[in-house]
C-alpha cells in the first residue's frame, strides 16, 4: 500500500537525509573536538546531534510509505554506523576503570534502551492520531512501532542480564528498573497478542490504540525508576558524565540502532498496511455469488 510521493514528501525525505548525515557528522566533530581538548561535550553539540538523528528517524517513519526503496538505504546506513561504532567500542575505546571490559556492553545496551523507548513513543503517537483520525495508515504504523519496541525491549533485557551477571553476580534481580522494563515488554506483547486475536479491523484498531496509550504510562516510569527508587541499576549518564573516549562509539551505535529501528518500523508498517488493505477490500464477485 504505497502512494506516489508528493512534493512535500520529497522535501521531507531530503530534510531527513540531511538531518541524519548532519547528526553523524556533528558527533564525529564533537569527538574530534573532545580529543583536541575542547570542552564541546556538555554544550549544545551532542544534544543537537541527537535531536537531528531523532528528527531524521521520525521523518523517515512518517513518509516511509511513499518511498518503497528507502528502507534498504536506511538499513545500510544503520549497519555502517553499527559496524563503525562496534569496532571503536570493542577495539579502540579503553576499558572502564571499575567494570573493565564488561563495560563495552554499554555500547549496544544503552542505544537499544533509547531506541526501545523511542519506538514505543512512536507507537503512542500513532495511537493518539489513529484514535482521532481513524486513518488506517496510523493503525499500521502503530503495529510496526509496537512490534519493533517489543523486540528492542526483549533484546534490552537480554543484554542487561548478560551485563548483570559479571557485575552484580546474578542474571536478573527484581529491581525497580528491571521490573518496570519487564512489565513494559509484557504489556506491549499483550497488545500484539490482542491485535493477533481480534479479527474485526475497526475494533482491533480502537482497542489496540487505547491499550497502547494505557501501556505507555510505564515508559516514563521505566525512565525515572532509577531516580524515584533505590535501584541497583545506575542512573542515566549525560554528556558531562561520559568519558570522552566512550563518546563516539556510544553515539555511532545509538544512531545505528535508531536507524535500524526506523527501517524495521517502516517495513513492518508496510506489512501491516498490506494486511489491512486485504481485510478491508470487498470480497471477490465469485464469493458474493456463492453467498447469494
Amino acid at each position: 500500500m504505497t502512494s506516489q510521493p508528493t512534493r512535500a514528501a520529497r522535501a521531507m525525505l531530503t530534510v531527513a537525509i540531511v538531518c541524519g548525515v548532519a547528526a553523524v557528522a556533528l558527533s564525529v566533530y564533537a569527538d574530534a573536538a573532545l580529543h583536541g581538548g575542547r570542552t564541546v561535550v556538555g554544550s549544545w553539540l551532542p544534544f543537537t546531534a541527537a535531536c537531528l538523528a531523532i528528527a531524521a528517524s521520525a521523518l523517515f517513519m512518517l513518509i516511509g510509505d511513499s518511498f518503497p526503496s528507502a528502507p534498504p538505504f536506511i538499513l545500510a546506513g544503520a549497519v555502517a554506523c553499527l559496524l563503525a561504532g562496534s569496532y571503536l567500542g570493542l577495539f579502540v575505546a579503553p576499558p572502564e576503570h571499575f567494570m573493565g571490559e564488561v563495560q563495552r556492553i554499554m555500547y549496544v545496551h544503552v542505544p537499544t534502551a533509547w531506541s526501545a523507548l523511542l519506538a514505543l513513543t512512536f507507537a503512542f503517537g500513532c495511537a493518539i492520531v489513529s484514535l482521532f483520525t481513524g486513518a488506517w495508515k496510523w493503525d499500521a504504523k502503530l503495529e510496526g512501532g509496537v512490534e519493533v519496541g517489543v523486540l528492542l525491549g526483549f533484546l534490552l533485557c537480554c543484554q542487561g542480564a548478560i551485563w548483570a551477571k559479571p557485575t552484580w553476580g546474578v542474571w536478573w534481580d527484581w529491581d525497580p528498573r528491571l521490573t518496570t522494563t519487564a512489565v513494559l515488554v509484557c504489556a506491549f506483547l499483550g497488545i500484539l497478542a490482542l491485535r493477533h486475536f481480534v479479527d474485526d479491523p475497526v475494533k482491533r484498531a480502537t482497542w489496540s490504540a487505547v491499550a497502547t496509550i494505557i501501556a505507555y504510562v510505564d515508559v516514563p516510569i521505566v525512565y525515572y525508576s532509577v531516580r524515584w527508587w533505590n535501584s541497583l541499576h545506575q542512573m542515566q549518564s549525560s554528556p558531562e558524565t561520559v568519558s570522552p573516549q566512550f563518546y563516539l562509539p556510544l553515539r555511532l551505535n545509538a544512531f545505528g540502532v535508531l536507524f535500524l529501528m526506523t527501517g524495521f518500523i517502516v517495513l513492518r508498517s508496510r506489512i501491516a498496511a498490506a494486511r489491512i488493505a486485504t481485510e478491508l477490500a470487498p470480497p471477490p464477485p465469485e464469493l458474493l455469488g456463492e453467498l447469494a
Binding site: G100, E101, V102, Q159, P166, L267
Partner: peptide, 28 residues
C-alpha cells in the same frame, strides 16, 4: 570491586544482538 576479564560476556552481548537483528530483518 573491580571486574576482571569478562570478554566472553561482551562477545555474548554483541553476538546475541547481531543475531536478533539479523533474524528479525530476515523475517521482515
Amino acid at each position: 570491586g573491580y571486574v576482571t576479564g569478562g570478554w566472553s560476556f561482551v562477545w555474548a552481548a554483541y553476538g546475541w544482538t547481531a543475531l536478533v537483528f539479523a533474524t528479525y530483518g530476515l523475517s521482515l
